[in-house]
């Protein structure tokens, strides 16, 4: 059986999405994209300088990638909407990751404002991927508003703490009929594999790759871990249980 990730009707070739911030240089970023074969890469519009011929980040992204602009820096829905429109006008296409962060201390998203921005932008034809705190009711609202995926955070951005929101993400995977992409907080390839084993459709990583000693090699490790995690999920690898289960059960004689 084919296991193709489809978002907004489009086949996505890799379940490993890569963010492009924090790299030491654009060539290193490009190498990480190429080596990991990431298909969707996010770009912060705040960093896109279309007037700079020498240093335009978009020039370093392989042609076959889908560029998903993000609204980094937006403090509310209105700013996110404006950034999305500017991104489209600047040639970033109509894939948009909505990030609304009114809190610069913890960088946690504002779900209510994100839902509002999603409603507006989905109607304008954007393929909207909202970054949110994992919350079932909000995920349903986003789904109704026309989101193409839901992107719950695994842990706060840049913390490398892994899938801290595990139980809530599991519920989203079970209940929401959209691809769930675990975004933020994944510090190691094993974290990415864990998210995929839970049934996430994809993961998005940035800090852990961009700030690694060898970003390309790290991106490759993440990419492989994502594939392994996905295969494990499909294979039905046994989930951990809270209680011990004897291998010679007491009722085993009732055969």
């Amino acid at each position: 059986m084919e296991d193709q990730l489809i978002i907004a009707g489009q086949a996505i070739e890799s379940r490993f999405f890569l963010g492009t911030g924090k790299f030491a240089s654009y060539p290193l970023m490009r190498e990480a994209i190429v080596v990991s074969r990431a298909h969707i890469v996010t770009v912060a519009l705040r960093r896109v300088d279309t007037q700079d011929r020498r240093d335009n980040i978009l020039e370093y992204i392989p042609k076959e990638c889908i560029i998903m602009a993000n609204t980094s820096g937006a403090r509310n829905a209105d700013e996110a909407i404006r950034i999305a429109r500017i991104a489209r006008a600047a040639g970033c296409g109509n894939w948009i990751k909505i990030e609304v962060i009114p809190d610069n201390k913890y960088l946690l998203p504002d779900n209510a404002q994100t839902i509002r921005a999603t409603e507006v932008l989905a109607k304008e034809g954007f393929i909207v991927m909202p970054y949110v705190n994992p919350d079932l009711a909000d995920a349903r609202r986003l789904s109704d508003a026309g989101a193409a995926t839901i992107m719950p955070l695994g842990a706060p951005i840049g913390t490398n703490k892994g899938v801290c929101m595990r139980e809530l993400i599991k519920i989203l995977v079970q209940e929401i009929n959209l691809p769930i992409v675990v975004d933020a907080g994944l510090g190691r390839p094993s974290h990415a594999a864990e998210a995929m084993e839970l049934g996430a459709s994809a993961v998005l990583v940035n800090t852990a790759v961009a700030t690694a000693q060898d970003p390309a090699l790290t991106a490759q490790a993440f990419s492989l871990a994502v594939r392994a995690g996905r295969i494990a999920y499909r294979a039905g690898v046994a989930a951990p249980k809270d209680n011990a289960e004897p291998s010679s059960p007491l009722t085993g004689f009732l055969r």
Partner: peptide, 16 residues
């Protein structure tokens, strides 16, 4: 900055 293994960035925001 490049010699120190960092990326010099000139644009980090745009007035909306």
């Amino acid at each position: 900055i490049v010699q120190k293994g960092h990326q010099p960035v000139c644009k980090d925001w745009q007035v909306l």
